[in-house]
C-alpha cells in the first residue's frame, strides 16, 4: 500500500520538475506549450477520495505556478479539471463498476477509452488555463486556437508516456 503512495509522490514531484524545467522552455512557434503535469490527475486511481483529488490537483497546479510566477492560474485550471474528472468517468462508462486494482490507463481500459478520457479532461484544463491567462474575451478565437494546438500536443505526450510505461512493465 505504501508502495502506491511512494510511487504517486515521486510521480507528483517528477512531473512538476519535468514541466517547469523542460516543457516550459519548449515553445514551438510561440503557440504551443504542452502541459504534461496534468498526467498526474489523469493517472490517479479510481478509488481516490474526491476531496483528495481536488486538494492534490490544487497543490499540483500551485507547484507549477510558483516556478512560472503565475501564482494561482495553473492551480485554478487543475482544480477545475479534477472537479470534472468523476463526471467524465461516469460519462464514458456509466454502468461499469471498476474492480479494485484497475487504473485509468491504456493497459487496463484500452486505447479508445483512455483517448476520450484524456482528450476531454486536457481540453477542459487548457480552456480554463488559457482563458485565465488572457483574461478577456476579445481575443476569443486566437485563444481558442492556442488551446486546440496545445491540447493536441499535451495529448500526444500523455499517450506517449503511456506506451513508455507499458514497455518498462513488460521488461
Amino acid at each position: 500500500m505504501s508502495n502506491i503512495y511512494l510511487k504517486y509522490t515521486l510521480l507528483f514531484v517528477l512531473l512538476i520538475l519535468f514541466q517547469v524545467l523542460v516543457l516550459n522552455n519548449i515553445q514551438f512557434s510561440g503557440y504551443v506549450n504542452p502541459y504534461l503535469y496534468i498526467l498526474f490527475i489523469l493517472l490517479l486511481p479510481f478509488e481516490t477520495p474526491k476531496w483528495l483529488l481536488l486538494i492534490l490537483a490544487f497543490f499540483l497546479g500551485f507547484g507549477v505556478d510558483i516556478f512560472t510566477k503565475t501564482i494561482g492560474m495553473n492551480a485554478a485550471a487543475s482544480v477545475f479539471m479534477a472537479f470534472c474528472r468523476p463526471s467524465v468517468i461516469y460519462l464514458l462508462s456509466p454502468k461499469q463498476d471498476f474492480e479494485p486494482g484497475i487504473r485509468p490507463c491504456i493497459k487496463d481500459l484500452g486505447f479508445r477509452w483512455f483517448f476520450a478520457y484524456s482528450l476531454i479532461l486536457i481540453l477542459l484544463h487548457h480552456l480554463v488555463l488559457f482563458y485565465i491567462e488572457v483574461f478577456r474575451f476579445s481575443e476569443f478565437f486566437s485563444t481558442l486556437y492556442k488551446v486546440t494546438i496545445s491540447t493536441a500536443f499535451t495529448l500526444i505526450l500523455v499517450i506517449l508516456c503511456q506506451y513508455l510505461f507499458y514497455n518498462f512493465k513488460k521488461i
Partner: peptide, 10 residues
C-alpha cells in the same frame, strides 16, 4: 479552492 486560486491570481 477555485475562489482561493482566483484570489491568488488577482
Amino acid at each position: 479552492l477555485e475562489v482561493f486560486a482566483f484570489l491568488l491570481i488577482i
